[in-house]
Simulated scan of single mutants.
Amino acid sequence: MKVSMSPPHTATSVRLLVLAVQLVLLVCGSQARDDTKRCKLFSESPAERKVLGLLEPLTNKTFSVETTSDKERYTYQFQVCGDVGKTVGAGLVQIGHTEKKVETVLGLYTVTQAIGGSDWVMLIYSNGTTYNGHCSKEMRKAIVMISCNRGVEMGKLEVVLEERERDRDCFYLFELDSSAVCPALPSQLSAGSIILIIGFVLLSVYLICGFLYQRLIVGAKGLQQFPNYVFWTEVGNLAADGCNVVCRTQGPEEEPPTYRGVSTEPEEEPEERDDHLLPM
Rank of each mutant, 00 (worst) to 15 (best):
S193T: 15
L161V: 03
A180W: 02
D169I: 00
L189N: 09
C170M: 08
L157T: 02
S204H: 08
V152Y: 02
Y206F: 12
G155T: 06
E153T: 14
E163W: 02
D169E: 12
V159T: 05
P186V: 05
V201T: 13
L207T: 06
L202W: 09
S204E: 10
C182L: 07
L196P: 00
L185H: 05
G199Q: 09
G192C: 06
L185A: 12
E163D: 03
R150I: 01
I195S: 14
R150N: 13
Q188W: 07
E153N: 14
E175Y: 08
S204T: 12
A184F: 07
L176K: 02
L202R: 01
E162D: 06
S204N: 11
S178N: 11
S179Y: 04
S178R: 03
E175D: 13
R166F: 00
V201P: 07
L161T: 12
L203W: 11
Y172P: 03
R150S: 14
C170W: 03
D167C: 05
L196C: 09
E162N: 10
F200G: 15
I198C: 15
C170V: 04
Y172M: 14
Y172F: 15
Y172K: 07
V159A: 05
L161F: 02
I198M: 06
V181I: 05
V201F: 11
V181P: 02
I195F: 02
S190C: 06
G199F: 04
L203F: 10
G199A: 12
S204D: 08
I197L: 15
L196Y: 05
F174V: 03
L185V: 03
S178V: 05
I197Y: 01
E165S: 09
L185I: 01
D167N: 11
G199E: 07
G192P: 01
C182A: 09
E158K: 15
R166Q: 06
R150L: 06
L196R: 10
G151I: 00
S178F: 10
D177W: 03
A184G: 14
V152K: 11
R168T: 09
F171C: 01
L189Y: 12
L207W: 03
E163Y: 08
V152T: 04
F200P: 00
C182T: 08
L176F: 03
V205T: 08
G155A: 06
A191D: 15
Q188R: 12
F174G: 02
L176D: 02
V152Q: 13
S187G: 08
L207F: 05
E165H: 07
D167G: 12
R166I: 00
G151D: 13
V160F: 04
I197Q: 12
L207A: 10
L157S: 03
S190N: 13
Q188Y: 08
V152W: 04
S187E: 14
A191W: 07
L157C: 08
Y172H: 14
R168C: 00
Y172E: 12
G155K: 00
L157G: 01
L173H: 14
F200M: 14
A180H: 03
F171M: 04
E158P: 01
I194Y: 06
L207S: 04
I195Y: 00
G155P: 01
L196I: 01
L161A: 12
V152I: 13
R164G: 12
S187P: 01
D167E: 13
K156I: 02
A184P: 06
I195T: 11
S179T: 01
K156M: 06
R166Y: 00
S193F: 10
L203H: 11
S193I: 10
P183R: 11
S187T: 14
I194S: 07
D169T: 01
